[in-house]
Simulated assay, not measured.
Amino acid sequence: MAKPWFARLALIAAIFAFCVSVVGAFVRLTDAGLGCPDWPGCYGRLVVPQSEMAITLANEAFPERPVEIAKGWKEMVHRYLAGILGLMIFALSIGALKDRRETGQGVGLPVFLSGLVIFQAILGAWTVTWQLKPVVVMGHLLGGAATISLLWWLAMRENGWFRDTGERIHRRLRAVAVAVTAVVVVQIALGGWTSANYAALACTDFPTCHGQWWPRADFGEAFVLWRGLGVDYEFGILDNPARVAIQLTHRIGAVVTLLAVLGLVAYLLTKVRDRVLRNIGWVLGGLILIQFALGISNVLLSLPLSIAVAHNAFGLLLLVTMVTLLFTLRHRKLDPASA
Rank of each mutant, 00 (worst) to 15 (best):
S297R: 12
A313I: 05
A266T: 12
V255I: 14
G236N: 04
R251I: 05
R273E: 15
R275Q: 12
N279S: 14
H250M: 11
P304E: 15
E221K: 14
L259Q: 11
R251L: 01
V276S: 10
S302F: 04
D232C: 07
G236A: 01
I296P: 01
I252D: 02
G230A: 12
T257D: 10
L225K: 06
R275S: 15
L268S: 04
L229R: 14
L259K: 00
I246A: 05
V320C: 09
L225C: 06
R275G: 13
V261I: 10
L294I: 08
T321K: 13
F219L: 08
V244I: 15
G286Q: 12
V261F: 11
R227E: 15
L301S: 04
A308H: 07
G253M: 11
K271N: 03
G295P: 01
A222R: 08
L303H: 02
N312R: 13
G315C: 05
L303K: 12
D239W: 03
I252P: 00
G253F: 00
F314R: 02
A245F: 05
V283C: 14
Q247L: 09
R275C: 08
L289R: 05
I252K: 06
V320L: 09
H250T: 06
V276H: 00
A242N: 05
F314K: 01
T257S: 11
F223T: 13
V255Y: 01
D239M: 07
I290M: 14
L277K: 12
V272M: 04
N279M: 15
V265C: 13
N298E: 10
A242C: 00
N279V: 14
I307G: 02
V231F: 05
S306W: 11
V255S: 00
L259I: 11
V255M: 04
L248E: 08
Y267P: 09
V224S: 14
L317A: 11
S302P: 02
I280M: 08
I252A: 03
L301H: 11
A245C: 13
F292G: 04
L300K: 15
N312D: 09
G220W: 07
L300T: 15
G286R: 06
G281M: 05
Y267M: 10
A266C: 06
G220E: 02
L248Y: 07
F235D: 15
R251E: 01
V309T: 12
L258G: 03
R251G: 00
L303E: 07
K271C: 08
H311L: 12
H311E: 13
L268D: 11
L225R: 10
L318P: 03
H311I: 02
V283E: 13
G253K: 04
Y233R: 02
